[in-house]
Amino acid sequence: MDLAHRPTADPLLRLLAHGFATAYHHPPGAVWHAPYAFHLTASAVPPGPQLPGTTPRTDWVAAANWSVGVAVAARADGMLRCGSLNHPADGAELPLTGPAAPAPGWAARPYAALRALAAAGYGRGGADLHLNAALPAVVGLPVAESLECAVALAVAGVHAERGARPLPRARLAELLGAAVPGDDALRRAVLFARSGHLLAADGSTYRSLPAQDGGPDPCLLLLTARIAADGHEGAPTGAGDTALANGIALAVREALRAGARSAWWPGKRPGRSVLLLAPRDRRAAIRTAAADAFARRGLPVPRFLRIALAAAADRADRHPHPPTTGKE
């Protein structure tokens, strides 16, 4: 059954498949989903077994239970026709070989990734693509690496089904690392993550992240500061940004005081979002303490999302992908 009409599929992926068919007047050949990925702070990971004379690992990444989606169909003319549910009026038709064409901002990195694949002999025939990111950029989870891996897997996959050579994920990681600036550790999480597990940043080993309160799984909360009522949004250079940064710092202190075990940025640089490791029985108190900290600063109450450790990118139209229920 076409994913757009499969009642048990993720609603966003059904919408993506329907949007693809509406835009290109034929159904997609495949639909992929790829998880958002994030870094973990060393304080969030309990020490594990280690060999004598070695130091504990502190560089871990993981995949989140929120994903980007890609609907794709193969072409044979070397062109990439791409659109996005997040940017409905900003599609493009771009060559994968020869001189590059100007791409819309949202498509620049996926386009660079697909040109790198084409140069290596994968997906040179081109594709129709339709993308969707489940979370807005302001939430703060890194998304660029997820989109790059998703479009590369989708395009290479539909061409492999038509007889082209398949693209191993290890080879994809090498190609993207060499051709597209980005976070290689996050790409490894997108490509190789296991549900319920952390992955070493160099991809060498996995380990579980046990719940510290005896629950069935660890509880991660993503706290995201909202834009102020005046709509201010930008790099922390103005008074409004300073107030926001101070509000986040105060909220983190109060969350730790209320029982959060660790707090850290999900990416490599500070932003408007913070991940909290929250014991299950303290989750409500942590949310209340953080929200009160923002209110005392006269800032809008932050958003909270529950984050679970998910598996790597996969075909969504072959395997069930239940709707995400992580909103707090």
Rank of each mutant, 00 (worst) to 15 (best):
E328T: 15
C149L: 08
L175E: 04
P166I: 04
G83I: 00
P136G: 14
N65P: 10
P56E: 14
P46S: 13
A249I: 14
A251G: 05
R282A: 12
C149D: 06
G271F: 03
L276S: 10
L221R: 05
G298K: 04
L3N: 00
V158E: 02
A37D: 01
H18R: 12
P168E: 03
P210D: 06
T242F: 12
K268D: 15
H321W: 12
G121C: 01
G182I: 06
G125T: 02
S273W: 08
T22A: 14
C149A: 12
A179F: 02
A108D: 10
R306F: 14
H159A: 00
A118R: 01
F294H: 12
K327V: 15
A62R: 01
L51K: 08
R253D: 09
R194F: 13
P302M: 07
G203Y: 09
P322C: 14
G203V: 07
H25T: 08
W106D: 07
A284V: 12
L167G: 00
G271S: 07
L276H: 01
L13V: 05
A42R: 06
G19F: 00
A291W: 15
E145T: 11
A291N: 06
W60Y: 02
A235I: 14
A245D: 07
A112M: 11
P166G: 10
G326C: 13
L129W: 00
P166S: 09
G157E: 03
R283W: 15
L51N: 07
A255T: 02
D183H: 08
A64N: 12
T58Y: 04
G98Y: 08
P323E: 10
G326I: 08
P322Y: 06
G163A: 06
T54C: 14
L221G: 03
R109I: 13
S43I: 15
R14E: 03
L221Y: 00
P300S: 05
R315T: 05
W265Q: 11
G78F: 02
A249C: 13
L186T: 06
A243S: 14
R194S: 10
R297Q: 12
D292V: 13
L176P: 11
F304L: 07
G157Y: 02
V151L: 10
Y36F: 14
V155M: 01
G98A: 09
P7T: 03
A133P: 11
R6W: 13
A64E: 10
R162C: 10
G69K: 00
P218G: 10
A74S: 04
L167T: 03
D184F: 05
V72C: 05
P49L: 15
L220N: 03
F20D: 01
R315I: 11
G271N: 03
L222E: 02
L96N: 01
A258Q: 04
H130E: 06
G83L: 00
G78R: 08
P210R: 06
S195N: 13
L299T: 09
V158L: 05
P218M: 08
R257P: 07
H232C: 14
A293W: 02
G215W: 07
Y206G: 03
T242Y: 15
F304Q: 09
G91F: 00
L223G: 01
S67N: 15
A103E: 03
A113E: 09
P266E: 09
P181C: 04
R194Q: 09
P88F: 04
A30N: 03
D128N: 03
H159G: 01
S208F: 04
R315W: 05
A74L: 10
C219F: 09
V45R: 09
E174D: 14
